[in-house]
């Protein structure tokens, strides 16, 4: 059994380290700091932490003002609230200005579970990928989270980073080196490529294992930076393996699948298949039950690989 670690906790701890390294780091939250784990930073640096209360839109405006005055701002809440609720503020104050604000959204996707559809952010990546100038990252595990948060702090400009609620298996190797805008090959293969992000990377690796026993060699790519996308990695995979499956915890529209398909269609058309939430909301339930019901499983990826292989020339 692989070790499971909470990416939120890693985020909270990384923020504290960043706070020690750079006094320009300021953190904002909206009455969720014990859940987003920004409360670690709040305890360590009470002067540089502001709880905005239930004022998400106000928080993004304040973040922009702080950033315009030289601060490196991290703003956190649940992914649902910090994406759709304050989208206009993000569009005008962050995207159109390019200011140095890092939106770190926790509890993304359906795996937030029992709270139900009001709390399940499944359109957030579509929203933030649509905004010019935003860098959008979905780390696959806690190891990658720590590095992605550091990379965000080091690069000027607005970011949207989505983390999950639960603990997730570690999939990145010990010597893993995260580079913004660069995807990572997690497993080599020549027959087909599975492109995945977030918790779906672990499922893709599991599917590849099953398929290997059936004689199918899958390449697995962790596409943790959705924007800017690693086009080169996509084109190489399409040309070398001739078929692609994209797996994500998001609606069909506007997320990783759409972004990869756009590159494939233009640069190297090959058959593709998609594993995602299609076009509907989920419901309350345990994370694992929901993943099963809505087809975000290794088995669903195996099926998608088989269907796309059948279409291969």
């Amino acid at each position: 059994m692989t070790q499971e670690v909470s990416a939120r906790e890693t985020y909270g701890e990384t923020l504290v380290k960043l706070g020690h390294e750079n006094e320009k780091v300021v953190v904002l939250d909206a009455d969720l700091s014990p859940s987003t784990m920004t409360h670690f930073f709040a305890q360590e640096f009470p002067q540089r932490f502001f709880d905005c209360g239930l004022e998400e839109q106000n928080m993004i405006g304040i973040a922009a003002g702080l950033a315009a005055s030289g601060k490196i701002v991290f703003a956190s809440s649940f992914a649902v609230f910090i994406s759709s609720r304050c989208f206009d503020q993000a569009r005008i104050c962050l995207s159109q200005t390019g200011l140095d604000v890092k939106i770190i959204a926790t509890h993304g996707g359906i795996t937030v579970g029992e709270d139900g559809i009001s709390h399940q952010a499944i359109e957030d990546l579509s929203l933030y990928c649509s905004l010019p100038g935003f860098t959008v990252v979905v780390p696959a595990d806690a190891v990658e989270t720590a590095q992605a948060i550091r990379a965000a702090a080091a690069m000027y400009g607005p970011f949207y980073v989505r983390l999950g609620r639960g603990k997730a298996p570690l999939v990145c190797p010990r010597d893993y080196q995260f580079t913004l805008g660069r995807a990572a090959v997690m497993r080599e293969g020549r027959d087909v490529t599975i492109v995945a992000m977030g918790i779906m990377v672990a499922k893709a690796l599991e599917a590849a294992e099953v398929l290997a026993r059936q004689g199918v060699n899958c390449r697995v790519i962790n596409m943790s930076t959705l924007k800017p996308l690693d086009d080169e990695m996509v084109i190489t995979a399409a040309s070398e393996t001739g078929a692609l499956v994209v797996a994500e915890e998001h609606l069909a529209q506007g997320g990783l699948g759409s972004r990869v398909a756009q590159v494939v269609a233009e640069k190297m058309p090959v058959p593709m298949s998609f594993v995602n939430l299609k076009d509907s909301y989920a419901m309350s339930g345990k994370a694992d039950e929901l993943l099963e019901k809505y087809g975000l499983t290794a088995a669903a990826i195996v099926q998608a690989v088989k269907s796309v292989m059948a279409k291969k020339q």
Binding site: D115, G116, I117, S118, S284, G285, K286, K293
Partner: peptide, 13 residues
């Protein structure tokens, strides 16, 4: 309440 398939979702629907 809050179980898979229930009419009683975590938040009102």
């Amino acid at each position: 309440l809050r179980k898979m398939g229930s009419r009683l979702q975590g938040h009102p629907d």
